[in-house]
Write a protein that binds this DNA or RNA. Structure first.
Lengths: 120, 120
DNA sequence: CCGTCACTTCGCCATGTATAGAATCATTAG
DNA sequence: CTAATGATTCTATACATGGCGAAGTGACGG
């Protein structure tokens, strides 16, 4: 029951849901997720920590950058099924497509430029 | 995105999750759900309304009694997949089994007796 | 080392939500 | 009709949660 609730609570927020769906195609750095969601770094960091705690997302450190990706094969069966459900449910969602296009645009920029959000 | 969020928010509360899982085997009257959850009638009623709004549950009126059941075939594909995920995820959950046993006990009692919760 | 940088954690505030009780609604029994 | 009953809606309140900014952490460049 606890794992299920951690997952449903993690998925029960629009920002976290968008972040998770944003990871469908590729792993993303926190500063890229900040740009996608338009929220403060501390807020996005907390959201990603909650998704990771629920077992839906994994974190990879590369120098000073922290990359997040879907848990995939390393996830528990329950978490993996949840990811499958939500990604399938979001197919054809216009809001998710808008975000996907936005990510393509974000990918054309340098991480250096994106992480300027910390200095503004 | 909106339907997904309605579903994940509806599933993101322990009482609502227990209520939904309680409907796996059979439909239940509100007073039976009140007995199961041990909450005030108004609270349980609101929880069930939220589950119904998310398309996870259907309501059937029989005289003064209101019965709730899983949406099943009448549910949208997204909601149906969510129900499948959560019921599969709860298989073998001890907490869910405890509730299931509790429901068996509740089923041995009359609705009249259970609905005494309104008069106490 | 020492500063910078990407990120996280902490402290706080505003909003949202779960809960109970009172009032109300709808249905049935008399 | 009226009263009783099961459920819902309304109102109020306590707690949880999302949000930000400031301070702290760990890695890299000098």
């Amino acid at each position: 029951m606890n794992e299920i609730l951690e997952i449903t609570k993690a998925l029960g927020d629009e920002s976290r849901l968008r972040a998770l769906l944003g990871l469908r195609a590729r792993e993303l750095c926190l500063c890229q997720l900040i740009e996608l969601l338009g929220l403060a770094p501390s807020t996005v960091s907390k959201h990603m920590a909650q998704l990771a705690q629920a077992g839906l997302v994994r974190r990879r450190k590369e120098g000073r950058w922290h990359f997040y990706r879907l848990a995939g094969a390393s996830a528990s069966p329950v978490a993996r099924a949840a990811i499958e459900w939500v990604t399938e449910a979001a197919r054809g969602e216009t809001a998710a497509s808008v975000d996907a296009a936005r990510i393509e645009e974000i990918m054309t920029r340098d991480l250096e430029e994106l992480s300027a959000c910390y200095r503004s």
